[in-house]
Nucleic acid binder design. Structure first.
Length: 408
DNA sequence: AGTCCACAGGAAGGGCAGGCGA
DNA sequence: TCGCCTGCCCTTCCTGTGGACT
């Protein structure tokens, strides 16, 4: 007979030595005391916003740069600095940061202004009010407070793509109507061509100043990682070789510092779980696989059942043996739709129209799970050439998830 | 040059759930 | 309670597309 262990099951984790010092330091949202390799950009940013300290309205400003180039962190860093000096000098300044990509938060015109009002301390329902009422309340609130407002709209391209740029026009025009206040807009985007697609009226008033954030190179990434490791890990837990590898991998991904930090943090977690006190190169490889796998599987799990059925149809067609006489396997929208309809029938799901399925295929393409290229087959019509864009091990995991949900 | 195919994708609007204010 | 507003998901209708075929 086995004896019952009366020791607490968590005791081993309390007693176990920790590889991390402060894991928050390794988070991409952590704002360090000093930002390496962004001196020029920080200087530009501060000089552009500095007029606000003397009571003038700064020019509207646009920050461009690919993912993980430090746009957001620099903007937040500057906000902190600005607010610190404002607190000391008693200036009337408010800074509001909104991420326009946040689902259900600021992904529509209504939600953006509702969120703005909430940030300014007003109570707003999630739905139910006309948008112009929100506009009015927002401008009234700002004007009544007689304040300088700096509005930072991160991932602004996402919102503009979805709802158009009218809200930007209204915001930039607002300064003509406000009597006691000013609004300065700081737009952040990783879409370098974003400005070209704006309405002329918006373009001229919004992009008064611009800053471009260039990608970090491997050496710069290594410096950034080194600084974070000092606070994040116990001394000696991360070797120079490991840092170099992390930096090199992230540099390959367009100099993405966020990716570098994620790699290092996850590698540390893997090492810790396997009871090792040193992060090794093998942990970085494992971290890379884990991050990719988790990202894709979480995305798939979070999709509505109709999207899952469309993806399952694509996988089923992909798994089907190639017909005799065919050299390669090409999946077309029509084939996917037919297979999708069969899956719906088998699962008692009401099938969507081909028009809607076409949009879902486009969304899966955007997520990076498939590639769907529009091709013309001459008199055999114009369609999409669809292929899976995930590796075999990931495909097996996705297939498992979908089989669980939708059967065989 | 004209026709044809199999869609792509834009526009408009329906239906629904949920909130507000009279 | 009712009318009006919102976002969201979806359908219907329509025009456009581009290369093979006639």
């Amino acid at each position: 007979m086995q004896l019952v262990n009366t020791n607490n099951i968590f005791a081993q984790y309390v007693e176990k030595e920790d590889i991390f010092n402060d894991k928050n330091t390794l988070s991409s949202s952590f704002i360090p005391q000093k930002l390496s390799h962004r001196d020029v950009e920080l200087q530009q940013l501060s000089s552009m916003l500095a007029p606000v300290l003397r009571g003038y309205k700064p020019n509207n400003l646009f920050i461009y740069g690919t993912c993980g180039t430090g746009k957001t962190i620099c903007a937040k860093f500057i906000i902190n600095q600005l607010q610190e000096i404002v607190r000391k000098n008693g200036k009337n300044l408010r800074v509001v940061y909104i991420n326009c990509k946040m689902k259900k938060v600021a992904d529509t015109e209504y939600r953006l202004f509702a969120q703005l009002l909430k940030e300014l301390g007003e109570c707003v329902p999630d739905t139910g009010l006309p948008t112009d009422v929100l506009y009015r309340r927002f401008f009234e609130h700002v004007d009544n407070k007689a304040t300088e407002l700096i509005l930072i709209l991160d991932e602004i391209d996402t919102l503009v793509k979805k709802v158009g740029d009218d809200f930007l026009y209204n915001l930039t025009r607002s300064n003509q109507e406000l009597k006691k206040s000013h609004i300065t807009i700081v737009g952040i985007t990783n879409d370098l061509s974003f400005r070209d697609n704006l309405d002329l009226r918006v373009k001229s008033s919004l992009s008064e100043e611009e800053i471009l954030f260039k990608p970090y190179n491997a050496v710069q990434l290594k410096d950034i990682l080194y600084e974070r490791v000092q606070g994040g890990f116990k001394e000696g837990a991360v070797s120079d070789t490991v840092l170099s590898k992390c930096a090199a991998l992230a540099a390959q991904e367009h100099g993405d510092a966020r990716r570098a930090l994620d790699l290092l943090r996850v590698a540390g977690e893997i090492a810790e779980r396997s009871g090792e006190m040193l992060v090794a190169e093998k942990h970085i490889d494992m971290a890379q696989q884990k991050i990719d796998l988790d990202r894709v599987t979480e995305t798939i799990r979070g999709q509505p059942s109709q999207s899952q059925a469309v993806l399952y149809a694509i996988i089923k067609l992909h798994d089907k043996p190639v017909s005799k006489g065919w050299v390669d396997k090409r999946l077309l929208t029509g084939d996917v739709f037919n297979m999708y309809a069969n899956i719906c029938k088998a699962n008692n799901i009401k099938p969507l129209t081909q028009r809607r399925v076409s949009d879902l295929i486009g969304e899966l393409d955007m997520l990076g799970v498939i590639t769907a290229k529009v091709v013309s087959n001459g008199r055999y019509g114009r369609t999409r050439d669809i292929a899976l864009a995930v590796k075999d091990d990931m495909l097996n995991r996705i297939r498992g998830i979908l089989q669980e949900r939708l059967g065989n």
